[in-house]
Design a protein around this nucleic acid. Structure first.
Lengths: 207, 207
DNA sequence: CTATTTATGGAACGATATGTCAATAACTAA
DNA sequence: TTAGTTATTGACATATCGTTCCATAAATAG
């Protein structure tokens, strides 16, 4: 679909709205209100297009949300995740990941919280595909974090006694906790406090 | 209301269902499905009473949910919170709080996650009163945890350099992260891993 | 030009949501 | 018994949900 967007066949009547801008708008509405609480009427109004045009362009609500999840992941989760894959030192990798996550969560230009974390709690009531996509995102994050610890341990930056799985679960849990607090509290310093304080749990190299 | 429940005026036709049992059932349904996703028809079916009886007994959906929140707080948040107020040693208090929270979150007899944490993410779409009640619950928890650190610092179990506010925010964030992970993952050991690992962030007494 | 294809606009669909009504039943007080 | 009060019952009102239909508009292909 993204590949097709480059070519311009332009057969039939051309669209009068920008699909990319519409997706961006839809993402913000879903992000702020949640999947269930967002109605197609909300989206129609926010994007300022006709109802049928929205369906013609994106299929239905579920398909649109899956596109939005994909867009969110590409636009916002890439930068924090890059810290985990590109920074060699594990401690610096995790710390940078947490700080970038905190920056994202406290960005006042964006809706509160993390779209994926927000979606976790309404998973059972939403569609099965959405549940799986969200769960896969969280599981993927844990795997990436685990990999950081495992590599660090293999290369000697972490002690052999360190529990890589527990550490990965912990830092993913911290990130989720930050996302939840960001949703309930407007205080930016609270999010950074959590990120910074969690680094004190870094395992010593005594073992 | 709870006081009135003891007296038995019994004027007019007596109720044919147990109000307390109905509230318990409603709590479980809300807990499992969330506020928005739970319909009054779901509750009517689960409690097995007539629709109008439900409205006559509890008012409307919002009022019922507020009662459910109150019930949840009394029934489940008391035990973890008691660790914070009753255990003198701050480290043992926090650790016990986290472990009791982990036990609660992984209790297979109960719905997944924490009702309050679950409600945080759908707050904006729910009623204003529900949002305030949930936010007040989280803020109250942070205050209680903060008090533990402040007392510990005053009495010398914590160094003067410890940032009590940041520590309180961190451990509340950890608890919220645990609640979110408990919702997405069925693995009980993940929750306890987070609780245990977070205790490694306990401040040293060097300062 | 005509035929074809795609987008738009507005109305409408069926399903389901919360909340209510009027009739009836079951109790107490006098 | 009679009056007053409250609970139950099933149907119903009203609104809104996601989704679709159809006539029309605007483009290309031949």
């Amino acid at each position: 679909m993204t590949i097709m967007a480059i070519s311009l066949p332009a057969r039939g009547r051309p669209r009068e709205f920008d699909v990319d801008a519409a997706l961006e708008t839809a993402m913000r509405v879903f992000w702020r209100q949640g999947y269930e609480a967002t109605t197609m009427s909300d989206l129609v109004e926010a994007i300022a297009i006709n109802r049928a045009s929205l369906y013609a362009a994106f299929g239905n609500k579920e398909a649109l949300f899956l596109l939005v999840l994909d867009r969110y992941q590409q636009a916002f989760s890439e930068r924090p995740m890059a810290a985990l894959t590109e920074i060699a030192d594990p401690r610096e990798a995790i710390e940078t990941f947490l700080l970038r996550t905190a920056e994202h969560l406290t960005d006042e230009r964006l809706p509160r919280g993390c779209l994926f974390s927000n979606s976790i709690l309404e998973s059972p009531s939403g569609s099965e595909r959405i549940s799986r996509t969200v769960a896969k995102g969280v599981a993927g994050l844990e795997d990436t974090v685990y990999h950081v610890f495992q590599c660090g341990q293999r290369e000697g930056q972490l002690g052999q006694g360190a529990d890589c799985r527990a550490l990965a679960r912990f830092y993913v849990g911290v990130a989720q906790g930050m996302a939840l607090i960001a949703k309930v509290s407007a205080d930016q310093s609270a999010i950074f406090d959590i990120a910074r304080t969690s680094m004190a749990a870094w395992p010593s190299r005594t073992i």
